[in-house]
Nucleic acid binder design. Structure first.
Lengths: 212, 212, 212, 212
DNA sequence: GATGAATGAGGTTTCATTCAT
DNA sequence: AATGAATGAAACCTCATTCAT
């Protein structure tokens, strides 16, 4: 059997197993987001999926375990977006930067729009499970801040950002702004106008500040 | 006993009762923040206070009830700070505004520093209890955003903010920045240097943006 | 102080104490009947009376204790009625007997009408408290049955009851009929017509049976 | 496996489940009757059965729920007896009626003898649980009274009951007599002689009254 | 003597997890 | 491999009773 086939020719059973695993993660994510982690029982998830609740334990160690996987999922999704869309070398002017910001923010907006549950889970639920999870979420924010910092530094070096810009701190601030936008979206997912105004306000603040 | 004294001279029993009530709120707040709302049992709170757990129920209807009171407490504290420190008429230039921002942010920083538990509770725990509480927290943020918006509009009128500033959206963004700062503080409460850098970064962004 | 005065000249305090005791019994009786013994808390009784619930324990040993007193009250009331109204020697014919039955049943009906709560308490609640109380209620019924039996025997001796009448068993049956009537009253206290029909039906059965 | 067998051949698991359910009802019934509903905890029932108390909740929604099922059980048992044994058309004389009374009372006596717990539960406990349950018990008595009334009317029509018999009221009275007998049995289940005397006394009263 | 604050035993119920089928 | 019956830890909450004021 060729290497190429190895991935394709999973047995039907194996494919089903992987599919179920994915289904469980998605359903769990939805339930956790809708009802809250503590208010969701394993039975709730199983019932929604139409499987026996014992089956859950064939795929995940315990209730806490699945949360890790749910967070894994969304983390890598966001991380990929940021990494793919950010080509530091490609940005050579404030305008380029603005372009890139717009592009990234649209991507992130899409992720949030397509996965409101996971966004809600990360921003509203996950920080209350236990210290480890809180740490993880914070760590992810830190990672994102670091990434942003690198771009800040690049921009400072190239001279289209203020020379005295505190790249690290500003990175954190920008991540905070992104989360604020996401939160705002979650509050009124259908108010497109407000979403655009928020995005614009953030961008204008970043580029021009609020001063006259 | 004079009429004037009547209010001061609560009976010893009454004073003790009020004191215990306050103690319970504080202890509950601490436990909720440290271990999380769901991980904290009424017995935990009672034990830490050295009282019987039945005593708790003489002062609060149930577990959920005390959360409301804890949130009440911190809400009014923050609201008072914002209302007292903000004298819209007094701000007549960008410099005045910067001054006021510094003053308010210091006040808020103090609140967060003095009540890290409640801050942690509001920012990390409260949004996962139930929809009502989430709504309440969000509503509080909205209220703060409205307040900030009013100042933005004032500044626009007086001409020291950009004429095309979207006051409402910007209000939300600024509240988001404040929360980001608070969250940052909670992550490393002892890193004064970082706290100052964050505050500066926020202020600089607001005043100047990040552009060169 | 004369013997006569001893009863009259209780101190004000003593009179108040006795009054409160009576009030507690009455209120407890009402609450027990309305909400049920187990569903009624000492606080409920105290609150309804407008006294502190600690005060209760100055007058009664515990919750169970008051039930005994409530039952005492109603027992002696009923017992007195039966004893006073029944003058065995006075009944010398079936018609006399019918008269007496009517008289007694009216008296009992009055008691039940005036104390529906205690009736409800005895018939519906008291037998579920504990074996002792059940025993007591049953014992009271037995006592009443004995009393009735004596009259039966008297009537048999005088020849206006069947010679082969089983006085003891019939006594029990008649007490059962009385309780049935009382229960019927409790179900629809305002349906006077039905009450009369029940009383008539009982009387006719006793005197004539149901046969043609 | 044939289609016919499908209904009979419940899986072993299903049969066990139904068996346990029945066992729980019986044990609960016994405990409620022996110790009283309020004095019985779910743990008591579970312990007596040798199961974990959580298991109880897999079969019944809550403590109140099982009471309903227990009452369901006994209600339908009694109802069936009355309905099966009563063939209105078959009774055409007072003697026939006396025969039928004897037959029915024996059947009921058997039920009470075989299920003293449920009898005790219905007569002594159930009326103190809550208004709904009291209503239910009373409603059942009403239903039985209606049934008896129908027979009374039949007898009046055929002329072997008094023409002026108040069928409805008498129906209630007779149900009361039945309950009185049952109660008497519960007091001394082993005194067969007394039970016979009670039954005879009731029958004689019904047929002949007590007069000479 | 009256009060009501404090207490904790005791009860109900939920649900994550295990394991026999 | 899937199931769901069984389990009991653990939480919430009530309330009879005590006792200091």
């Amino acid at each position: 059997m060729s290497v190429m086939n190895e991935k394709k020719s999973l047995s039907r059973a194996e494919r089903q197993k992987i599919q179920l695993r994915t289904d469980i993660i998605e359903t769990a994510s939805a339930e956790f987001a809708e009802r809250g982690y503590h208010q969701t029982s394993i039975s709730d998830i199983a019932q929604r999926l139409g499987i026996g609740h014992g089956t859950f334990y064939r795929h995940f160690k315990n209730k806490r375990d699945i949360l890790d996987h749910v967070i894994d999922d969304v983390s890598s999704k966001i991380a990929n977006t940021l990494l793919n869309e950010n080509a530091p070398g490609a940005v050579n002017s404030l305008d380029d930067y603005r372009e890139q910001c717009l592009r990234i923010s649209k991507q992130l907006a899409n992720i949030v729009r397509d996965n409101p549950n996971t966004a809600r889970l990360v921003l509203l639920e996950a920080t209350s499970i236990d210290p480890e999870m809180t740490q993880r979420i914070m760590g992810f924010f830190d990672w994102a801040a670091k990434l942003v910092s690198a771009y800040m530094e690049h921009g400072v070096k190239l001279g289209f950002f203020r020379e005295d810009l505190d790249a690290e701190a500003t990175g954190h601030v920008i991540v905070g702004l992104i989360m604020t936008s996401a939160l705002s979206f979650l509050r009124s997912p259908d108010d497109k106008a407000m979403q655009k105004r928020m995005a614009d306000a953030v961008l204008r603040i970043l580029v021009d500040g609020i001063g006259a």
